[in-house]
């Protein structure tokens, strides 16, 4: 792990995001999430749809800003910054989104898309070497500048569009890259290409990355640490290395047990029972369960879980869980 504890690149404390849902109700999308990403580290955020992982990603770049909580990028506190300074600070953090085709303006050409950030922040300063720098950026992400430079997004494949998005983000030399499901709309073979590209890029540039996805093995592959979310809360934070053996939160175990056998490889998870797979409806984020939000699906749930919300506790260095009952595993292979 490359964590250097003294200078986190990105810190978020007690983020809360709520959306109005009509009739006076509120969607509790994110309820008190804290995270920290060290310089050069990749934090994976894992969870199913509706768990608030994408909302966390968006509130990190203040689009929209969280309803409560603070976000610090290096030494700048983003929350509460004046709009002009916020725009400048935000450019130090870039986002890669799930649908690469929709993330590119359909009416612009690739060269202008890649140059977009530069044209916002450095008008006139180095437009003369625009072509050379755009070509270099495209080559960096594995695209052939001569063939794609003058195309429009709909003339490219999904994988190529995602490469253009990455090139565009890197053009601004960001410190932190936020990837929101960057490979889930891509084919398996293309997914591997993009994961490899992100891996080598972050390593070469010592970029910090927040990698949001629903696929356990994808997240494990690219992250140093993994944060598991369920219904707007953090369940478990643990190092990704060996997570298939070390994870103890019942929800994490359920996610691991849901993986198809081929993705488990030789790592068939053993240990605490996975949550019982009931065909029950998921609880609504409009009215989340009291206490522990996972208790309605949890095999370990007791009365205490309904009454008292489990506080995050550290069960070993770098491994925190929010569960009353789960215990660290003693003897694993």
């Amino acid at each position: 792990m490359t964590t250097t504890r003294d200078a986190p690149a990105l810190t978020a404390t007690d983020l809360v995001v709520e959306f109005p849902a009509g009739r006076g109700q509120k969607v509790h999308a994110v309820s008190g999430v804290s995270l920290e990403v060290a310089a050069g580290e990749t934090l994976g955020i894992l969870g199913e749809s509706g768990c608030g992982k994408s909302t966390v990603g968006r509130s990190l770049i203040q689009l929209p800003p969280p309803d409560a909580g603070t976000v610090r990028l290096g030494d700048v506190t983003l929350t509460g910054l004046a709009p002009r300074e916020l725009r400048r600070a935000r450019a130090r953090m870039q986002i890669i989104m799930q649908d690469p085709v929709s993330a590119l303006n359909p009416r612009r050409r690739v060269k202008d898309l890649v140059w977009e950030g530069r044209s916002i922040w450095g008008p006139g300063d180095d437009t003369r070497d625009k072509d050379a720098r755009v070509d270099a950026a495209l080559r960096d992400v594995g695209l052939d500048p001569a063939t794609v430079r003058d195309r429009r997004p709909h003339e490219l494949s999904g994988g190529q569009c995602q490469r253009v998005c990455i090139a565009r983000a890197l053009m601004l030399d960001p410190e932190v890259l936020i990837c929101d499901e960057p490979v889930s709309s891509l084919d398996v073979s293309v997914q591997a290409q993009i994961l490899n590209l992100l891996e080598t890029t972050t390593r070469r540039r010592a970029l910090s990355m927040v990698f949001i996805a629903h696929d356990v093995s994808v997240v494990k592959n690219i992250s140093d640490r993994v944060m598991v979310m369920y219904l707007g809360k953090v369940c478990e934070v643990l190092p990704s290395d060996g997570m298939q053996h070390e994870a103890v939160h019942p929800y994490t175990r359920l996610l691991l047990a849901s993986l198809p056998e081929a993705q488990l490889g030789s790592a068939a998870p053993a240990g605490p029972p996975a949550a019982e797979e009931r065909a029950a409806e998921l609880p609504s984020p409009l009215n989340p369960p009291s206490g522990c939000r996972f208790r309605t699906r949890c095999p370990l749930a007791t009365e205490r879980c309904a009454a008292e919300e489990p506080a995050p506790r550290e069960i070993r260095p770098g491994h925190r869980i929010a569960c009353h009952h789960a215990e660290p595993r003693r003897n694993h292979p």
């Binding site: 994961l195 891996e199 696929d215 990704s240 290395d241 298939q244 081929a262 998870p269």
Partner: peptide
């Protein structure tokens, strides 16, 4: 081979199929 697997250590470069 290009499917990420749980038993691989983190940061393993996957053998991707190049081209389209």
């Amino acid at each position: 081979a290009s499917i990420p697997r749980l038993d691989l250590p983190p940061h393993t470069l996957l053998p991707a199929i190049e081209g389209r």
